[in-house]
Design a protein around this nucleic acid. Sequence first.
DNA 1: TTCTTATTGTAACATAATGATACAATAATA
DNA 2: TATTATTGTATCATTATGTTACAATAAGAA
Lengths: 249, 249
Amino acid sequence: MNKEFEQQESNISGEGFLPGLAIDTVIFGFHDNQLKVLLLSYKNSSLYALPGGFIHDNEDVNQAARRVLESRTALTNIYLEQFYVFGDYSRYDPTPLKAIMHARGYTAPDNHWLLKRFVSIGYYALVDFTKAVPSPDDISDSCDWYSLDDLPVLMQDHRQIIEKALQTLQNNLDQKLIGFNLLTEEFTMGDLQSLYETILNKKLLRAAFQRKMLSLGILERIAKKWTGGAHKAPYLYRFISNNVTADTF
Amino acid sequence: MNKEFEQQESNISGEGFLPGLAIDTVIFGFHDNQLKVLLLSYKNSSLYALPGGFIHDNEDVNQAARRVLESRTALTNIYLEQFYVFGDYSRYDPTPLKAIMHARGYTAPDNHWLLKRFVSIGYYALVDFTKAVPSPDDISDSCDWYSLDDLPVLMQDHRQIIEKALQTLQNNLDQKLIGFNLLTEEFTMGDLQSLYETILNKKLLRAAFQRKMLSLGILERIAKKWTGGAHKAPYLYRFISNNVTADTF
DNA sequence: TTCTTATTGTAACATAATGATACAATAATA
DNA sequence: TATTATTGTATCATTATGTTACAATAAGAA
């Protein structure tokens, strides 16, 4: 998996990969009361991009997305979901990839498969910020968290992809029980509410929120308490994962 | 557009189309209190399939889906939405298409592009049953409505595609206001309730349903009434389309 | 015409969900 | 021991939904 892109570069016809199809993954994390996404940056260029990849010609598309996710975060068993296919012709622009290749000292022929039109399948993932270990892929030189409300300039339509992923997350938050995937295993009701407020971008009433969450019957209250400031200690809760697993739709 | 598939057959390398990418469209209609889908059948074979197609190399993917939809129904301005990408490797099975080509007197070489692995982007559409004019494509010899609870045996994973489309429709029915797209322009509250009951596959309380629908403020009551049986005549309603257009997400 | 019958539109009440406010409990610190 | 901030929850208000009931018809029958 390590020399994969190296192979891709010299593999002018794209042997072994599905042609024209890519995966882009919006990997969400939550830290300091902010939503974060993982972005890659490239040597000798000011380009930032979503983690992505290609699909081996004998590989499930969803499995390819999971492979990308796992290799960028060093995590397995993560909530991951398709949300949209970005397939407008206007996306087609080989310039940035050309620039990246150039910056790495590789001059691709114009008919190189990576410079052709790509349709991209958008996935979003929810990971525990504290557990992920971001690592760049073979053509990028950094992989880091960026706050959603302070994103660098992104390659191609990656900003719209993030925007649409966030909309999907907002829509799904109440129906599916997926928010928990962004938290550590144990969390306070305040943590959970802050997460919801950040994702939905609006204030929620504390009393009603707590009542609602408890009534769902998906939180286990851990007898242990928290030690912090000069006030009553909150309980710690744990998500009872019986109901929903990563791939449940 | 007419001779398109003819071209595709003799076009062994798939020139002009995005390779390995297909579109499958679940076109829903509503008639006789049943949900219907449009299916194609093929000469000299017992194969049934969803309407589908390929993407021109200079065409938006969504536009290609709309082109497929319009050419099967002779309708424009239809509610159409992506819902899932079917990309498992296990889908790969050139047998049925081979059989279809064979039945048409064409023997494709094994490296024919249409016999390679395809990833399929699933769309679903909601159309007015009474307005659609089903017409087969160039390789099928019929295009007809089939009731969802009495489907013929379908090619490849098309049955699962329909299943997933239905789930998506059920999930979206309450949030987005899309049910109306399955009805004629004017309809009674009974029609609407029957539609909802059929899609959701459960009985709804008449009084509550009517109250809810009216409270949404999206129905215009047309003063005219209906003439039918030995009972009070229902009002006709019309959907006020200000709010939601076809591509709104 | 009047009566019967089925269905519609909606009122009325019961129950459940949510919004909003208040307050006791309590964990540090002064 | 008093102070302070925050938590957990009770309480009431408001809104939404479930449920039942009934008046208002539009035909056909008497």
